[in-house]
Amino acid sequence: MTVVAMQVNGKQVSADVEPRTLLVHYIRENLRLTGTHVGCDTSQCGACVVHVDGLAVKSCTVLAVQAAGSKVRTIEGLADGDSLHPVQAAFKEHHGLQCGFCTPGMIMTAVDMLRRIPKPDEATIRQELEGNFCRCTGYHNIVKAIKAASEVL
């Protein structure tokens, strides 16, 4: 076991974990932040996307120890108190979800996308979502929500 400390959503945290502990399990089981989901567990589906030092990554394919000393942001760290992040608000407004399982990952990817590409066109949004699967096939409204968010950000 090893003590792994990092900053998550602005708070300093630490936990005693095995080196093989994945970042997603550290977040869900040690920190009890269960908004980040495990979907495929094989770095394909993107349900587990969080930001590590400002970059969106698949937390099922990062060891918690690799992120030691980093700044991590999860879906729980997006809203400002009761007011939703503009991307969250746009997903709500445009019904960018059906069952909601992929939504945290979709939103974390979208926030990262809009940081890099502030005004993406529809084709770019779809291409940038390559690493996030929605098995309800609700992509249309997800794309619409991201486009709408890009206009207010």
Binding site: V49, A56, K58, D112
Partner: peptide, 9 residues
């Protein structure tokens, strides 16, 4: 290569 999330790592 891969997708944007994979390209970040």
């Amino acid at each position: 290569i891969g997708d944007p999330l994979v390209r970040h790592r």
